[in-house]
C-alpha cells in the first residue's frame, strides 16, 4: 500500500476534521461579525456612553496574539472558577478576538461616512436601529469588503491554533494521522489543500460582493 492509499483509507478522519473546521469557522465568523457590527452600533450617536470601554477592548484585542486569548479562556479561567470545554473556549475566543477586528474595520469606515446620508434618514423618521441596519451597515460592508475578506481568512487560519488547546479540527486530524502512520508529508499536503480551497472560496465570495458593489458605484476598498 502506498502512503496515499493509507491516507485514502482514513478519509473519514479528514472529513470530520474538515467539517469541524468549517463549523468552527462558520459559526464564529457569523457571531464575530454580529458582535463587531453591534459594537459599531453602540458607537452611534453624538456622545456614545460606551466609547471609551469599547476603544480599550478593541485596541487590547488588537495587541494580543489569538492563542494567548484561547489560553486565557481554556487554561486561565478555571482558576477563577469558570470551566468550559476546549470547543466552547475556542469558539468564544474566536468570536471575541475577531469581533474586535471586525468592529475596528467597520468603525474606521463609519468615521469617513458622509453625514448627509444619515441626516436624510433621520429626516425621514428612521429609528436608530433601522437606520443602522438599512442605510449604514450595508454601505460599510460594501466599502470594507476587501478588509472583511482578509479578516475572514485570518479567522480561518486562527482556527488551526485551537489544535494546541486540544480541539479536534483539521490540523489536529493531519497531526494525528501523521503520527499514527508516519506519513506527515501526504497528510499535511491534503490539509493545506483544504485550507487553500476555503480561502479561494472566500476570495470568490468577496469578488461576488465586489460585483454587487461595483453596480452601485462602490469602488474597491
Amino acid at each position: 500500500m502506498s502512503n496515499w492509499d493509507i491516507l485514502w483509507s482514513s478519509y473519514d478522519v479528514f472529513l470530520s476534521g474538515f467539517y469541524n473546521t468549517l463549523k468552527l469557522f462558520g459559526l464564529s465568523a457569523v457571531l464575530a461579525f454580529l458582535m463587531g457590527s453591534g459594537m459599531v452600533f453602540l458607537l452611534e450617536g453624538s456622545r456614545p456612553r460606551l466609547k471609551i470601554p469599547l476603544r480599550i477592548f478593541i485596541d487590547g484585542m488588537r495587541m494580543l496574539p489569538f492563542l494567548i486569548l484561547a489560553y486565557l479562556l481554556y487554561y486561565g479561567l478555571p482558576s477563577a472558577g469558570i470551566r468550559m470545554s476546549a470547543w466552547t473556549a475556542g469558539i468564544i475566543a474566536l468570536v471575541i478576538y475577531h469581533g474586535a477586528y471586525f468592529a475596528e474595520i467597520l468603525r474606521g469606515c463609519r468615521a469617513t461616512f458622509a453625514q448627509g446620508q444619515v441626516e436624510a434618514a433621520i429626516a425621514q423618521g428612521f429609528s436608530q436601529p433601522k437606520m443602522f441596519l438599512r442605510i449604514i451597515l450595508p454601505q460599510l460592508i460594501l466599502k470594507t469588503r476587501g478588509l472583511l475578506g482578509n479578516q475572514l481568512i485570518i479567522l480561518l487560519k486562527d482556527t488551526a491554533f485551537l489544535v494546541i488547546i486540544t480541539v479536534r479540527e483539521l490540523t489536529a486530524a493531519a497531526s494525528s494521522l501523521s503520527s499514527t502512520y508516519f506519513i506527515p508529508m501526504e497528510a499535511f499536503i491534503v490539509v493545506i489543500g483544504f485550507y487553500w480551497l476555503i480561502s479561494i472560496g472566500l476570495e470568490l465570495f468577496i469578488k461576488m460582493i465586489g460585483r454587487f458593489g461595483a453596480k452601485r458605484g462602490f469602488e474597491n476598498a
Binding site: A114, G116, Q117, A120, A123, Q124, G125, F126, S127, Q139
Partner: peptide, 24 residues
C-alpha cells in the same frame, strides 16, 4: 423620545443641498 421625534419628522419632507441619496 427618539420614537416620538421620528414620528414628527416623518410629517416633514426635507430636500438637502447635497441630495444625500443612499448610494447602495
Amino acid at each position: 423620545s427618539r420614537r416620538e421625534l421620528a414620528g414628527m419628522r416623518a410629517r416633514l419632507g426635507m430636500v438637502f443641498q447635497g441630495f444625500n441619496l443612499w448610494p447602495h
